[in-house]
Amino acid sequence: MEALYTAEALATGAGRNGRVATSEGRLELNLAVPAEMGGSGDGANPEQLFAAGYAACFHSALQSVARAQKVSIADSSVGARVQIGANGTGGYGLAVQLEVVIPDLPHDQAQALADAAHQVCPYSNATRGNIDVAITVSED
Score class of each variant (00 low, 15 high):
residue 82 V to L: 11
residue 81 R to N: 03
residue 47 E to L: 08
residue 52 A to E: 08
residue 50 F to Q: 03
residue 32 A to C: 00
residue 90 G to C: 14
residue 77 S to G: 12
residue 36 E to G: 02
residue 81 R to W: 00
residue 84 I to T: 11
residue 83 Q to L: 13
residue 80 A to G: 00
residue 68 A to E: 15
residue 40 S to K: 06
residue 24 E to P: 01
residue 25 G to Y: 08
residue 67 R to V: 09
residue 91 G to N: 12
residue 71 V to G: 02
residue 51 A to H: 08
residue 56 A to S: 15
residue 52 A to N: 07
residue 89 T to Q: 14
residue 37 M to N: 01
residue 38 G to R: 02
residue 61 A to L: 11
residue 31 L to S: 01
residue 55 A to P: 04
residue 83 Q to S: 14
residue 50 F to L: 15
residue 54 Y to H: 10
residue 66 A to M: 07
residue 60 S to N: 04
residue 87 N to R: 10
residue 61 A to P: 08
residue 47 E to Q: 06
residue 83 Q to V: 13
residue 38 G to Y: 05
residue 60 S to R: 03
residue 79 G to S: 11
residue 29 L to S: 00
residue 49 L to Q: 00
residue 87 N to H: 10
residue 34 P to A: 07
residue 82 V to N: 03
residue 72 S to F: 06
residue 83 Q to H: 12
residue 66 A to W: 07
residue 79 G to Q: 04
residue 60 S to F: 05
residue 86 A to R: 14
residue 36 E to I: 05
residue 89 T to C: 02
residue 90 G to Y: 15
residue 68 A to H: 13
residue 29 L to I: 12
residue 76 S to R: 09
residue 59 H to M: 09
residue 92 Y to C: 05
residue 43 G to D: 05
residue 81 R to F: 01
residue 47 E to W: 13
residue 51 A to I: 11
residue 66 A to D: 05
residue 71 V to D: 00
residue 86 A to H: 14
residue 73 I to S: 06
residue 68 A to G: 05
residue 54 Y to D: 02
residue 39 G to Q: 04
residue 50 F to G: 02
residue 65 V to M: 09
residue 68 A to F: 06
residue 23 S to G: 09
residue 72 S to T: 15
residue 73 I to V: 15
residue 28 E to Y: 05
residue 71 V to K: 05
residue 36 E to F: 02
residue 72 S to R: 10
residue 25 G to E: 10
residue 87 N to S: 14
residue 30 N to V: 09
residue 92 Y to G: 15
residue 91 G to T: 12
residue 63 Q to C: 14
residue 88 G to V: 15
residue 53 G to H: 13
residue 51 A to M: 08
residue 60 S to A: 14
residue 44 A to K: 09
residue 83 Q to W: 11
residue 39 G to V: 09
residue 45 N to S: 07
residue 77 S to E: 03
residue 45 N to R: 04
residue 48 Q to R: 08
residue 77 S to N: 04
residue 38 G to C: 05
residue 38 G to H: 05
residue 59 H to F: 10
residue 37 M to P: 01
residue 82 V to E: 03
residue 64 S to D: 09
residue 65 V to D: 03
residue 68 A to P: 02
residue 37 M to Y: 00
residue 86 A to I: 10
residue 53 G to V: 13
residue 86 A to F: 14
residue 34 P to T: 10
residue 92 Y to R: 05
residue 86 A to C: 08
residue 50 F to S: 02
residue 62 L to K: 09
residue 40 S to H: 03
residue 39 G to F: 05
residue 42 D to Q: 11
residue 55 A to I: 12
residue 75 D to G: 06
residue 49 L to G: 00
residue 89 T to V: 14
residue 31 L to G: 01
residue 54 Y to I: 07
residue 79 G to M: 00
residue 83 Q to R: 13
residue 61 A to C: 10
residue 45 N to P: 09
residue 28 E to A: 14
residue 36 E to T: 10
residue 60 S to P: 00
residue 44 A to N: 11
residue 34 P to L: 08
residue 86 A to S: 13
residue 48 Q to P: 15
residue 56 A to W: 04
residue 82 V to C: 06
residue 75 D to E: 15
residue 53 G to A: 10
residue 46 P to G: 07
residue 66 A to Q: 05
residue 38 G to V: 08
residue 61 A to T: 12
residue 42 D to S: 12
residue 37 M to K: 00
residue 59 H to I: 09
residue 54 Y to C: 03
residue 69 Q to W: 07
residue 35 A to V: 13
